[in-house]
Amino acid sequence: MDARLRRVNKEIADCKNDKTSNIRIDLIDSSPFHLKGSFPGPEDTPYQGGHFEVDIVIPESYPFQPVKMKFITKVYHPNVSSASGAICLDILKDAWSPVLTLKSTLISLQSLLCSPEPNDPQDAEVAKHYTTSKHSFDETARYWTKMYAQAPGAGVTKEDTVAAAGLEKAHVDQFEALGFPRAKVVDVLRRLNYRGANVAQITEDRVVEELLK
């Protein structure tokens, strides 16, 4: 049998038989080389309670070249692209070793959620948010977990763009009152990282200037 197929089949089977871990690997269609991984958000983090799904593509030269993974679930995290779900993690690149498995890689993703690396960001805007105001960042990450990762939470039924962008409603209202469209205000304030201590650093004129562009 093809070595890659044998290895992937065994990895899928091992994962199924392992009742202690909470990592799951499922087939998406009939191919064993395109899979879906999932795991619960780690406890004591803003991701707690969420259910995170990962798209897995096994390349031709697996396990000698790394597996390709990206988040299907939207995640608010410095090392995950908020738009595409792309992940910045060394073992998915040059630190990959053929002894690593799909399960061990998914566990690494789970622990990446516990310990972000804002100095090696995938999403620069999210990373800025993380470094300037950890408290506000946590709130936004928690909101995303509730909104997109099916975490049980009261009152989240319709997407709130202000909370999803990690902004304060009062700030958005303030600039919207000047006559700018709300979506544009959210976009500009998010780009300027108009959060926490940073708010004092950014003059109102600067924001308006951006809004007029």
Binding site: A3, R6, R7, P63, V99
Partner: peptide, 12 residues
């Protein structure tokens, strides 16, 4: 131990 070697990479 014995002559049954299982490759840790391909499980052969």
């Amino acid at each position: 131990k014995s002559d049954t070697f299982v490759c840790s990479i391909c499980f052969d």
